[in-house]
């Protein structure tokens, strides 16, 4: 378990997340891709904190902030899914052609 292996794992998670966020048609699956990206970001932050940052507390704080970003992304995503579903009975990105509904 070195910094390089941890960063490789984070890179793999971010890569899979980018694939998912770009390729999925369903809103909720798309959000799963975004979550995976943030998962890799948090792992990289903790890895840097443990191996390069000499345990500076700001490294852990950054991870907490990413967790808050993740929670905000989830709630806003679900609210938008509800709003879109109410307006268009749609749950795929293809059925949205404009920002207004």
């Amino acid at each position: 378990m070195t910094l390089a292996t941890l960063l490789l794992l984070a890179a793999a998670l971010i890569g899979i997340g980018i694939y998912g966020a770009l390729s999925q048609q369903s809103f909720v699956m798309l959000m799963m891709g975004l979550e995976l990206i943030l998962n890799g970001v948090m792992l990289a932050a903790v890895a840097f904190w443990a191996f390069s940052g000499a345990g500076a507390p700001e490294g852990q704080l950054l991870t907490i902030i990413v967790m808050a970003v993740m929670a905000i992304e989830m709630t806003m995503g679900f609210a938008l899914v509800v709003a879109v579903f109410r307006g268009k009975q749609a749950d795929t990105t293809e059925s949205l052609t404009g920002l207004k509904h």
Partner: peptide, 17 residues
């Protein structure tokens, strides 16, 4: 999407290594 995922993985891995 597969291309973007693979490219970002390769770039980030290169940075890590």
């Amino acid at each position: 999407s597969i291309g973007a995922g693979v490219v970002s993985f390769l770039v980030l891995s290169a940075m890590a290594l």
